[in-house]
Amino acid sequence: MDSTLLKGLRVLEELMRSPAPRRARELSDQLQLTRSNVHRTLQTLIAAGYVRAAAGSGYEPTLKVAELAGLVTSRLDVRRRAHGPIRQLARTSGQTTHLATLEGSEVVFLDQAEGTDPVRVRPVIGGRAPASCVASGKALLSRADAAQVVEVLDVGLAARTSASITDPEVLARDLARARDTGCAVSSGEWRYDLAGIAAVVLDAAGRAIAAVGLSGPVDVVLDRETEFREAVLATARRVSCDMGSTGYTLATESDGYGPMEKENIR
């Protein structure tokens, strides 16, 4: 067990629970840690952006903790709010649908619903897939900041099939297309026989916190791509609105490519 990490968490928790800034001496007495230990821990937390020196004296937590807590809360809430809509999407499309979120270079499946098509894919709840190989991952990467995309590239683009994207420039074009059209598409990149379509879910702050995805046999999904795009976007919009988003934009041009007319959803 890492005692240094535990000390840091104890100090941070004490500051979070305190209604006012705390001095190092007070923290030392409260937590029964040496003053030098508390000072070193506070400097580390300041360097990491979790704590700052308060005006006057003492130390207080920054909003970074609240921001991270908000992301976790949103992730838990979005699963509850998307549970019904992705099941409705599975029923109407006949394909397997899922809700996924981005963690590092992978997507994590938060929920899934099976369709009625005889050929089905069953993503395991809690299971993972390379973000660059699946539509939900590419949808989320298309709205991610540069640091997250760099993290994916640093890990290396996974080659699960011969169709997997392994060239960063090709991935960049795919992500740009997903941003322009509102949907990301994968075809045989994770499993050679499967294709997928996905769109992001936005929270009240406009952050892409998850993606609604649909997957099925390549020939079925690509033959009905326009229909499935509209259905996936409508589902993502519905969940986003339920999460408090007021600025979800949908691509309205039927072919899904080229210059896009945007519709603001209020």
Rank of each mutant, 00 (worst) to 15 (best):
T246I: 04
S18F: 07
A113W: 01
G213V: 00
L68G: 10
A144V: 00
E151R: 11
L157K: 01
L202E: 04
R35E: 14
D193K: 10
D29G: 15
S254K: 12
A176E: 13
C133D: 10
L27C: 06
S254L: 12
G256N: 02
D203K: 01
R177Q: 14
A66K: 11
G196S: 14
R17D: 14
L99C: 09
A178S: 12
A48K: 13
S164H: 10
G84F: 09
D77F: 00
V218Q: 09
A195F: 03
A24C: 02
A54C: 13
R179Y: 06
S3W: 06
K64H: 11
L6N: 14
L42Q: 03
T41Y: 05
Q148Y: 05
H83I: 02
R79V: 12
L68Y: 11
E60T: 07
A204D: 13
L99Q: 02
A90L: 00
P19R: 07
A195K: 00
R17I: 09
L194V: 13
P21V: 02
R122T: 13
C133S: 15
M1D: 13
D145G: 15
L9P: 01
V38Q: 00
A147E: 15
T34W: 06
R120K: 12
M16Q: 12
R17T: 09
P123Y: 00
S240W: 00
A195R: 00
V232R: 02
G182Y: 01
D29V: 15
S142K: 04
R23W: 01
L76C: 11
G94Y: 02
A178D: 05
R238N: 14
